[in-house]
Write a protein that binds this DNA or RNA. Sequence first.
DNA 1: ATTCGCAAAGTTTTT
DNA 2: CTTTGCGAAT
Length: 795
Amino acid sequence: MTEKKDGSSGSIHAMGHALLDRLNGPQKAAASHVEGALLVLAGPGSGKTRVMTHRIAHMIGQGVPAWEIVALTFTNKAADEMKRRLAMLVPGQKVWAGTFHKFCATLLRRYASLVGLKENFSIYDRDDQRKALKQAIEEAEVELFQYTPDEIANKISWAKNQLISPEEYTARPGDPLGSLVERTYEAYQRRLLEANAVDFDDLLYHVARLIRDHEDLRRALDQRFKYILVDEYQDTNLVQYMIVRGLSIDHPNLAVTGDPDQSIYGWRGASLNNIMEFEQDYPDVEVVRLEQNYRSTHAILSVADQLIRNNAYRKHKELFTENQGGTAVKLVHYSDHRDEADRIADQILDAVQEGRRQARDFAIFYRVNALSRTLEQALRRRGLPYQIVNGLEFYQRREVKDILAYLLLLNNPQDDIAFERIINVPARKIGKTTVGHLRRHARQYRMPMIDAAREALTIEGLSPRSAKMVAQFVSLYDELSPLVTQPVEELMGQVMVKTAYRDLLANSDKEEDQQRLANIDELLSAAREYDDEVGEEGGLEGFLEQASLVADTDALHTENDKITLMTLHAAKGLEFPCVYIVACEDNLIPHSRSKNDPDQIEEERRLLFVGITRAEEELQLSLAHYRTLRGSDFPTSASPFLLELPREQMDVRDMGLGSRFDLPDFMPETDVEMTFETPWEGDADFSADSSPEEEVYDDQGAKSGKGGSKKKKSGSGGHKLLTAAQMAGESVSRRVDPELFQFGMLVSHPEYGSGKIVALSGRGLKRTASVDFFDGSQKKFRLAFATLQPISAAD
DNA sequence: ATTCGCAAAGTTTTT
DNA sequence: CTTTGCGAAT
């Protein structure tokens, strides 16, 4: 994220005694703590990360070996930020910092055999998990009646979070769903083990069980990781608690930071009790409260504070700031959703046009994703650039998952989910029936499906035609198999070519497929980056693990000059100069589904608190008299939380009902550069009109297309020809810049003739291209030295 | 094996 | 208003 304005980079003060000088009193107290338990109750914007990193640096300065320190976070982003700052504070010191899941994955690879896995296990995301579960349900011959696999999955997940094994799981009498789980949980877990795979929950679950059930191992790990730090401790669940607890018995040097007021993931199993009862768990704990806020104005902080005081289950903090009062927090009542969006967009447009603000200074938060649409339209009609943080992540896209499935299967031949995903992708005339036969055979003889495929000819009921197709797939697999030791980029490139996956997309004239092509090329560059980063070691397994555990690192580019739209949940951990929180209405926040349970109401209040405290300088809360949501239009009532705010200090306005029916549609009053010609509402193909280099919107899957028809990013992928200038330049100079060569490019070689680049790997002088020549031969070239000439760009 | 059409349901989702 | 899932029809 952006650098804190209190100068928290700290890089200049890395040395000795000066290290803690720039911290305030409580920060210093926390950072200079070394032995024993520490609880840092950190209010929003109180410099928590700064304290953690300085504490680590201080510990190292006190002679603690870096490798005895582990810092656990929930997100990769938080971990990366911590590493970045540590690299400046204590250069060259290898402190292990990463997510819980990554930490557990690493441990589990080492001790896989203790839980019946092999070290090359696959990690299943929700999608794969669902598939495995459905299979398990089928195989256990359980009739679901009205229940869905999702409900079962949630219960299983819950059980794992309670550290309950399939054997231990017992349904309460008269709990029909529970008894279904009782019968499926075991089958599901067996299925995972047979596939040598784990789901996200398992990563934590297996490690927690190991620690609990193998005292010798627990002791060894406790010894190895003498100093443990946990960030966002209020979000830990029971399993995480057990892990951390188990590793801090002989060496109870456990430092946790968090803020009970920012716990918003209770619904996912996070247990606020962990932080609330930390002092009971570690009686000798030192408790530090970070109450000074460096982020927000007094006006904003005071609103936040007033709100959160209404929660009963919390640890009170006297939040304060030395920042100036700032402008009053606005609370605006609009007539309807459209008015709300338009007026907000107007405000932003004004500020940007007048040069007071940049687009990137603004963020708009909402409780549910469905609320984003109106805002998008309003911004779009004004030509204001925005980005949405949500949904369809890169690694979830079908084409990306397909390619990854090939790699997964190559890395872990037991991975039947991966096998089934790709056996007929691209289409090989291997249909449901054939796959069914393979699966039955595989289960019957307890073998992976790839091995069953090898015996296709012997499988009864499988037509010779089908068997032949399967055999072809097997030989494809065997052809790719020896390449697993190659750099990932090379391997992936070969997969794309040998499977004809790439050609399939390249030869399609559907725009959608062109987008897909661009995506797999992006995957290819992810592989390349990985190869560069890890060098020789790491390998395929590391890449796959990263792909599973890294949601999408660059979902949010703050360097882009764009307005950010996101849910309140997604806003946690971020900060913006100007924040809008829309639809502060009853049944939205608190959400109607949370209103029965007082605990959930408190969580909703925390959610609003989190939103408010993201704002640095300006904050506006808004609501509408009428809201159109999901097609229906209804009158609203204000969120009860608004009544808890110090409205006398705020700028409260009612923009009235009257305007509701005579509001003209937005008309651009001025022509500025950033206003695009958009005669058709919601139907503008902006990127086509703007510079092809610059994407205007970070829209998910090309939102600017009309009514579901997907549109590709202009200028990416596709049929590019080299410019005349490039061609001319190349024909003169014999060698070409190695970076110019692209995947799929046609090239010519003085000796071998023409061919196509089917793989690329390495960087700089080592950058190597594999070329399939049209005479059938394949050669590899060091691009810096080869006399290879591009004929045309990719495809 | 894709495509179409209809019904149903829609809170939030760090890994 | 959307998206999504399933069953039926090319």
